Amino acid sequence: SLEEAIRRAEEALRKGQTFEYAGIRVTTQEALEKFRKWAEKQK
């Protein structure tokens, strides 16, 4: 689910890792916010 993907992205960010979902790379807090906004639109 998208909620699960967001949780995994947050977890990866805390560990300093890269999270990738549907071709979207989350490597920074800013990218995480963009990913969250994108995920909201997918619902």
Rank of each mutant, 00 (worst) to 15 (best):
T28P: 03
E30R: 08
F19T: 01
E4A: 10
Q17W: 10
E30H: 09
L2S: 02
K34F: 14
T18E: 14
T18R: 07
E4L: 09
Y21E: 04
Q42R: 07
Q42C: 08
V26M: 06
A22I: 06
Q29E: 12
E3N: 10
F19W: 06
F35W: 06
K43I: 15
A31I: 06
W38E: 03
A9S: 02
K37G: 09
A12W: 04
K41V: 11
A5H: 06
A12T: 06
L32F: 10
W38P: 01
K41M: 15
R14P: 01
K15I: 11
E10P: 00
W38L: 04
A39N: 03
E40A: 08
L13S: 01
Y21I: 08
E11W: 03
F35T: 00
R7H: 11
T27S: 14
E10F: 05
K15E: 12
Q42K: 10
E3L: 10
Q29N: 09
A9P: 00
E10A: 07
E40V: 06
A9I: 05
Y21A: 03
E40L: 08
R7N: 09
F19P: 01
T27Y: 07
A39W: 08
A39L: 11
K37T: 11
G23N: 07
E4G: 07
G16H: 06
T18L: 12
K43T: 13
I6H: 01
E10H: 05
K34Q: 14
E20K: 04
A12N: 04
L2P: 05
G23R: 01
K41S: 15
G23W: 05
E40K: 07
S1H: 13
I24E: 03
R7M: 12
K37C: 05
I24A: 02
E20D: 07
I24Y: 11
Q17S: 09
A12H: 06
W38T: 02
A5G: 03
E4T: 09
T28H: 06
A9E: 00
V26G: 02
G23I: 01
Q42Y: 10
F19V: 03
E33I: 09
W38S: 01
A9W: 03
Q29P: 13
A12S: 09
R8G: 10
K43A: 13
Q17I: 11
L13Q: 02
G23T: 04
L2K: 02
T18A: 14
W38M: 03
G23V: 01
G16E: 05
V26T: 00
R8A: 14
A39M: 08
R25I: 15
A31H: 13
E10T: 09
A9N: 00
F35E: 00
E40R: 06
E3D: 15
E10S: 06
W38N: 01
Q42A: 08
R36H: 06
E10L: 05
I24K: 04
E3Y: 08
Y21Q: 03
T28R: 02
K37V: 13
K43H: 11
V26P: 01
W38G: 01
R7G: 09
R7T: 09
A12I: 04
Q29L: 14
L2H: 05
R8Y: 10
R25W: 13
L2C: 06
A22E: 12
G23K: 02
Q42V: 13
Y21M: 05
K37Y: 12
A31S: 15
E4W: 10
A31K: 06
E4F: 05
I24V: 08
Y21G: 02
R36V: 14
R36W: 05
F35M: 05
Q29D: 08
E20H: 06
R7I: 12
K41N: 14
R14M: 13
K43G: 12
K34Y: 15
K43Q: 14
K37L: 13
T28Q: 03
A12L: 07
A9H: 00
I6T: 04
E11K: 05
A12R: 03
E30Y: 07
Y21T: 02
A31G: 14
E40F: 06
E20S: 07
Q17P: 02
E3V: 10
K43L: 15
Q17D: 12
A12K: 04
K34P: 02
K15T: 13
L13H: 03
G23F: 04
Q42L: 12
L13Y: 06
A5N: 05
F35P: 00
G23S: 05
R7L: 13
E11G: 04
R36S: 05
T18F: 14
R14N: 12
R36Y: 08
E30P: 04
R36T: 08
R7Q: 12
A9M: 06
R14F: 09
E4V: 08
E40I: 07
E11I: 09
E11Y: 03
G23H: 05
K37R: 11
R25P: 08
I24Q: 09
A22W: 07
K37N: 12
E20W: 08
L2D: 01
K43V: 14
E10I: 08
E33R: 07
E11R: 05
K34V: 13
S1V: 13
Y21F: 12
Q42T: 09
F35I: 04
A5S: 05
E3S: 10
E11M: 07
E30L: 09
Y21H: 06
I6K: 01
R14Y: 10
F35H: 01
Q17V: 11
Y21D: 02
I6F: 07
E3Q: 10
F35G: 00
T27D: 15
E11H: 06
A9K: 00
R14K: 14
R14Q: 13
A5C: 04
K41P: 03
L2E: 02
A22D: 10
K41H: 13
E20V: 11
E11L: 06
L32R: 00
K15F: 10
G16W: 04
E11A: 09
K43W: 14
R36M: 12
L32W: 04
Y21K: 01
T18Y: 15
L2F: 10
A22Y: 09
E20I: 11
K34S: 12
L2R: 03
I6N: 01
W38C: 03
R36I: 15
G16N: 08
E33H: 07
L32G: 00
